[in-house]
Design a protein around this nucleic acid. Structure first.
Lengths: 194, 194
DNA sequence: AGGCTCATGTAACCGGTTACATGATTAT
DNA sequence: ATAATCATGTAACCGGTTACATGAGCCT
């Protein structure tokens, strides 16, 4: 229900092709909404059928032809409607799914060493993503937008990038502390080990 | 791909019914893997067809009859296989999807006040979930398990609960800081507003 | 009489994944 | 040559959601 709204969101910036959208997705919202390129095309098709977007063939000679998609008035309306929609129940995390945490949860029968390795790997991955997001955040900060519209967009982007950075920081910390806890568990075999 | 493994995981504790599983899910892994009761029954059906679990009718007089599911050897094997499986690419977050962040990302045209309200609500929700998880964590800490098996399980549970607590803490902090940032943006209308 | 706990399912739908398929132009 | 960038799609599948459907026993 949200890839389509993400597409509408980006198209509200300016008309673009499916290919452009894929790049925008992977360079900005990727960490909280990974989109398959193929899915974008599928969704564009549906949106066009519903009258949310319209397309225009652009013939090119040096490059393959392309289809430029734009928001229709109905699409703009739907985007606004969705932006205002907020779920009241602690629903913000209903969609949150983590196979990784599930594995940790059930690793009671796994050796501590293995679990520690897993945590270590996770921690490294988080640091990697942190670096990426940090790059984005710095770039956003160092290139001030001239017009107020872009400035506001950049501010929103910065807000989400900041979320990502904090999230990754938290994950790294958690994993490191977890490793320490497990090490202690390993070293103290329990009060009575007969 | 993971609800089924969660089911196998819980069944490795002890044989139980779909109803039991639903309760276990919602009381422990709920915050990182919300499971519909109906989906659990569906999945149990598939798992039985694949030979991962077997069921036994238990006739009851004071209560409705029930079906007790147990892990088969093949199910145990599959659980172990899955527990060892770890994705190498920074895939840990490929599944992470947040419609909420998407809305924040595209709220450049929304009034700061509205966005601030949204953040405030989010923050409250996070605090609520934090309280829940804190309750679980405290309970886990105050009731020491006697046998080493349960102790290890409890440790894993504690690890994931701790993750949740930190996550919620981070979210609350982020939202509060975000509100402050937006307030500043509101008060300083920009360098040249002609 | 009404609500809670126990208990198990079905059917329609859909958003998304995986894998596959194609092909032009430009730069190295 | 070949890799990268530009560019667009289809088909099979599947995990999960929403909504619906049922019904016994117990407690107040």
């Amino acid at each position: 229900m949200s890839l389509s709204h993400g597409i509408l969101g980006f198209l509200s910036y300016e008309p673009m092709t499916g290919y452009d959208l894929a790049k925008f997705f992977s360079s900005s919202v990727n960490f909280f909404w990974h989109a398959q390129t193929s899915q974008i095309y599928l969704e564009l098709g549906k949106l066009e059928k519903n009258g949310m977007v319209s397309s225009e063939q652009i013939l090119q000679t040096e490059k393959p032809n392309k289809k430029l998609y734009s928001l229709t008035p109905a699409g703009k309306e739907e985007l606004q409607r969705w932006l205002k929609e907020n779920k009241d129940t602690p629903d913000a995390f209903k969609d949150y799914k983590s196979a990784f945490l599930m594995q940790i949860f059930f690793s009671g029968d796994t050796s501590e060493t293995e679990t520690m390795e897993r945590l270590q790997k996770f921690s490294s991955q988080c640091q990697e993503i942190f670096q990426q997001l940090d790059g984005i955040a710095n770039q956003l900060q160092s290139t001030p937008e001239k017009d107020p519209v872009s400035a506001r967009r950049a501010a929103c982007w910065a807000l989400t990038a900041d979320f990502g950075k904090r999230y990754m920081e938290m994950c790294t910390q958690w994993a490191q502390d977890g490793i320490r806890t497990l090490r202690q568990l390993q070293e103290t075999p329990g009060p009575d080990q007969t």
